[in-house]
Write a protein that binds this DNA or RNA. Sequence first.
DNA 1: GATAGTATGAAACGCTTGTTTAAAACAATT
DNA 2: AATTGTTTTAAACAAGCGTTTCATACTATC
Lengths: 214, 214
Amino acid sequence: MGDSTRERLLRAAGPIFASKGFRDATVREICDRAEVNLASVNYHFGDKERLYVEVLKYAHSQRMNLAASRSRQPSSSPVEDLRRFVHDFVFRALAMEDDSWESQILLREFLKPSTACRELVQENIRPHFEALMRILSRLLPEDVPPEKRHKIGFSIIGQCVYYRVGHMVVEVLISPEEKATHFSAEQVADHIVQFSLAAIAGAAHVETFESISG
Amino acid sequence: MGDSTRERLLRAAGPIFASKGFRDATVREICDRAEVNLASVNYHFGDKERLYVEVLKYAHSQRMNLAASRSRQPSSSPVEDLRRFVHDFVFRALAMEDDSWESQILLREFLKPSTACRELVQENIRPHFEALMRILSRLLPEDVPPEKRHKIGFSIIGQCVYYRVGHMVVEVLISPEEKATHFSAEQVADHIVQFSLAAIAGAAHVETFESISG
DNA sequence: GATAGTATGAAACGCTTGTTTAAAACAATT
DNA sequence: AATTGTTTTAAACAAGCGTTTCATACTATC
């Protein structure tokens, strides 16, 4: 990233949008930190909202690059693919340890989706969801209907996201020692894979659990 | 709740704060919906923030009433308890149907807590989590270590929360027809129960999946 | 070196926000 | 009925916001 006014703005806006949200972040503060003129946002991006969209895209692309090296490896088995997917997800989009503004701002979008979010999901998230769907269709019997595969996909993603969204709650509910010894990103990812594989294995014999729970 | 100006304000402010957040909610809109004069907020509550705190307290008390009715405890099977827990969580705590602004505003606080009411959120979440832990310890073998039970609990809650937090993502990724026919709150809750029971059943034979995935 | 197109700068505009004001309406007590 | 304190009303206020303006500085092309 260079040093043009446009790039200075993108770099300055990220942390501010992340910590304060779209509404509470002011153009004046962004320009102040970027050390550019107040009118620059409107000149280079049109308005505040289009700057926000660009920042969002940049944040997401940064997150993707983090895991790019890992996910490009050739696929051996679907189980191994799922393992890689979950690990990438936990490390990339969630990155439990870090408080980087990239993950903050994406989290904010999930909680309170702006109109910009739709665009982001379409362009950036859908490919990863479809990759997960391809993994699942290899893991599941062929007669499992698509909506069932979708729900299973959301269940897997949901677990990953919660460890980020609710990490504050996790900290409150369990002891610090337990968190230190058993809740590293690696361990959490392993658990999610194991939990989901068990559930998927069970999905082949649905009637068993239907009879239990029904 | 009566019909005084103060009470009209509390009733009107709840859903607005819940859907828009503190900053984006305007006192003009609140007074408009409450059909009271613009100056009423400052007269009866001092300022906008103290109105917000009162609304939060009200939401919390409402949720406590719900939790009280939930702890009508004993059930024959832990499976049935889990089913009830998930259904309650999806229907009331999360309220996919938008009838519960109380949960929305608390979820908002739980993700970005305002300094005033951090412990308010704590008190709200912990009883739910401990209730789930009691269910899980009946569902799982005794030798399953506590941190494993905790992770399984987070996995279940994570699925529930994701359908709330990531509902925008869900809407974009699947077709409207599929959402209408297969993603009602009832169907989602059923799926989560089934998925989690299958995973729990598998947790008794962990080594199987360890050997598959490792 | 003149010129056209682009980028920056300082100031102001128009609008919305939460809040305040002061008068009017109401309620209750004497 | 007069007086007191409380509540409601309409209007205005001051501050902050995103955005626009227009003059100026830069940069590349001829």
